[in-house]
Amino acid sequence: MREQSVAADYRLTHASTKQFQMARRALNSLQRIIIPGESCVPHDIDVVAKICAHHNHDPAALLEILHDTQEHFGCVSDEAARRIAQDLNISRADIHGVRSFYGDFTRDTDKPKLKLCRAEACQAVGSEELARRLSARGIASETIYCLGNCALGPAAMIGKRLIGRASAELLEAELADD
């Protein structure tokens, strides 16, 4: 019953956004929600409570709280979402809505380390070809639209390190250093 309502809520909120993520991705997420079981790795939930307290339990600071959680654990797990909902006195559906709207937040620790800009300025200097070369080397990357390094593209980012004039070789070396 609970799962059904979560799924219905999910469908409702998702019916109106990110259509381009296509049916397959939506279906995958839907299955993940319907099938019971926690996302992400087990972790110290007290950290989440501390993060909420640091932001004065302010619901308006939800993005900051989710950022801190994502940075600390590499994801915003269902368990963490539950704790945030409790501490901020907002619904889990609200948290899920926000988590799924913004590209920075993930439910699982499945975000690639490498961010690759695929927006126009980087396209103009071969970011699409670079993306193909990276995937040929088996290097996963997250698509980002603009890293603000548009005069020195293709641009990429590993952690908080910005890389300009990127090539597949350079990025492979940078990833190995990381």
Partner: peptide
């Protein structure tokens, strides 16, 4: 901080985001 959404550059979407919403 924003969180990777382009449309949040639109002023009213940005305000929603500043309120902790989608």
């Amino acid at each position: 901080r924003g969180a990777g959404s382009y449309v949040c550059g639109e002023e009213s979407a940005m305000l929603e985001s500043l309120e902790g919403k989608r």
